[in-house]
Nucleic acid binder design. Structure first.
Lengths: 361, 361
DNA sequence: CCCATCTTTGGTATCGTTACCAAACCCTAC
DNA sequence: GTAGGGTTTGGTAACGATACCAAAGATGGG
């Protein structure tokens, strides 16, 4: 509407940069640029953007026109710095975004974060402590207001309250010795015990175990629950049926194939997580196809639900828990601690219950 | 080692904040805090953190000790502002992080971003144009150096070069009319045509269609491919067999159940995406269970691969393409444009090929 | 012993934004 | 006409970090 007195020169356009003469590297517009174009002071621009309190409507129009013309967006980093508001970010470090389990988890965190008007910034550690350390450092450098972490395990120097400079931390899914932080776990031991017991009750005596590394707490705890159930039923543990340390589907499939190839193969398999379940099922599927589609194989107990479990050709029991809910709980704990006064309370450890779903037995 | 002359007071501790007397709200340490504690100037701290060029080793030790003591982490936002380096962030806006397809996609973007030392910041639009608009605005405010977006469709004012202030944008998976941006698509039409043709070649004549809304380009293009294949074989389209607009598994399952309940149900179903495939299979699975486990149902063609396809009780053909690769390609295009001089080139549209996998027919 | 050179250190200004203050302006009412 | 109130506007400083410059200290050669 109002026409601009176009001194349309962006600051810095005039002087032919003496250092590097690199071409058009997209420099975002600033309040000053807008102010110059609109013929007002930066403060007036700032006020207009902030809602226009005490700015004459016709001036606002001028400013907004300039904003449009330059494609200006307020630099939120600079703004937050001045206003001394937090960054509006929480860091989420998971092992692998491609694992649907952790993707759901991240979604749960995002949900709660969005409710608090906070954005999440995600990084994958790939189960690597060093990458985790870098990731956390980077997050802290970006002034995240809190951290949600699925710890890779190993050294935990970088997670001490001291090292975090007081930034709240929540550990999810896995516990970590010697780190004083809120933790949200799943009832790994109880769930594993219940799942294994279901197999035993159904009469199985040769039960294999497929799980992740003993070094991470879930691996440890789930294995413990598995063993305790066997003990309860007086069934001896056959070491040949225990495969631990598979991190991905391929490794799990290989381990499972080896189990199927045993002279005396297991009649049931306890899969300690999502990745191992899928791998085991793929191994069974390959066998099914070789044998001309006769749908059969050992019964499966899976720690973690997965899509289409009901369509599997073998009996499946699921130790279910909601990854998304785990994410929500973690985030809730985090925001509680980020709230004024939240830093004082003693750290909490929440254990989420599991639910046994017998898909088919 | 060197002992600190502990005037260990953090700035602002002394004066009892006159405004709000809120308790310990975690204020991160700054260079000044470190400098005071170490008894040196902020510059010396800055230099030490930056690598210690021209700082006496014993002073460095002092500084690092103070850094440890305070849990100091350099404020990267402030730093980047002064150094006039980009934010080291690219924004990724997808429809839903819980969809494994988009999670993989995000992972692909993250991979490439990590190679460039750039972090990604993720948000879900939930297929909602307004949320998309807000998300993009937020990202721009955070000074992202680039945007990767799976557009929700609808109005695209906020995606014009003008509105973005020149921040590079890559559209992924779906095209958008009237937006001048690099786009990475999948060969939707060709893939859908090939998949449908496979069904027709196998003798199917009553083929249903389950897909997402016609308003998004994938929905449009895949449907077009489907229709063209039918035409090629001279098979008339039965409107009763076409269900469009299902966004999630539940909706797809309901639609599929309706199809199964028809007097003259389809002998095959074309599922235009991941969510619809899973929903369709769940519907079939429910039917299978009702009928006492007799594994049978219509043949399925699925646009999008999914885990355990080989274990399904019905014949499955997959129109495969790698979401992660799609993410990688998108990110690669984005970084090309973010590079010096990259803004000049004409926008490109890449179409990734699909691959037909006959799991069982 | 002093000047030249190099290393070490600190002061100042700045990135983009806004809180705060002060000045200019507009009204109304006496 | 002017004092008193409100509204509108711009200047200045500061958030946390560092580029740049200048000063101080160390080193060495004559």
């Amino acid at each position: 509407m109002a026409n601009l007195n176009a001194h349309g020169d962006r600051a810095g356009d005039g002087k032919p940069s003496p250092t590097s003469s690199r071409p058009t590297v997209h420099r975002p517009a600033t309040v000053k640029d807008v102010a110059k174009l609109a013929g007002v002071s930066p403060m007036t621009v700032s006020r207009t953007i902030a809602g226009g309190q005490n700015v004459r409507p016709e001036i606002q129009a001028l400013v907004l026109e300039a904003v449009q013309a330059l494609g200006y967006h307020r630099n939120d980093n600079a703004r937050r710095m001045r206003v001394n508001k937090g960054s509006g970010l929480v860091g989420v470090a998971i092992t692998n975004l491609a694992n649907p389990y952790y993707a759901s988890f991240a979604l749960g965190v995002e949900e709660v974060a969005a409710q608090h008007g906070v954005r999440i910034i995600i990084g994958s550690t790939g189960e690597n402590t060093e990458r985790e350390r870098q990731l956390v450092a980077d997050f802290l450098g970006r002034q995240v207001e809190g951290l949600v972490l699925v710890p890779a395990g190993g050294d935990s120097e970088h997670l001490q309250v001291q090292a975090l400079g007081g930034t709240p931390l929540v550990l999810a899914s896995r516990a970590l010795e010697g780190v004083d932080a809120d933790t949200v776990l799943v009832d790994d031991t109880g769930g594993a015990h219940a799942g294994t017991s279901a197999l035993l009750k159904a009469g199985h005596r040769r039960i294999a175990y497929l799980g992740n590394a003993a070094s991470v707490s879930t691996g440890h705890r789930r294995y413990a629950g598995f063993c305790r159930a066997l003990e309860d039923y007086g069934v001896p543990l056959d070491p040949a049926l225990v495969k631990r340390g598979q991190q991905d589907v391929e490794a799990a499939q290989i381990s499972m194939t080896a189990l199927l190839d045993l002279e005396d193969p297991p009649t049931a398999v306890f899969c300690a997580n999502n990745r191992n379940t899928i791998g085991a099922l793929k191994a069974i599927g390959a066998r099914v196809q070789e044998r001309g589609g006769i749908a059969t194989g050992p019964a499966i107990v899976s720690f973690d639900d997965f899509e289409l479990a009901e369509l599997m050709p073998v009996p499946i029991t699921i130790i279910d828990h909601d990854a998304r809910q785990l994410g929500r709980e973690s985030a809730t704990l985090l925001f509680a601690r980020m709230a004024p006064g939240g830093a004082i309370a003693a750290t909490r450890e929440i254990e989420m219950p599991t639910r046994l779903i017998v898909v088919r037995s």
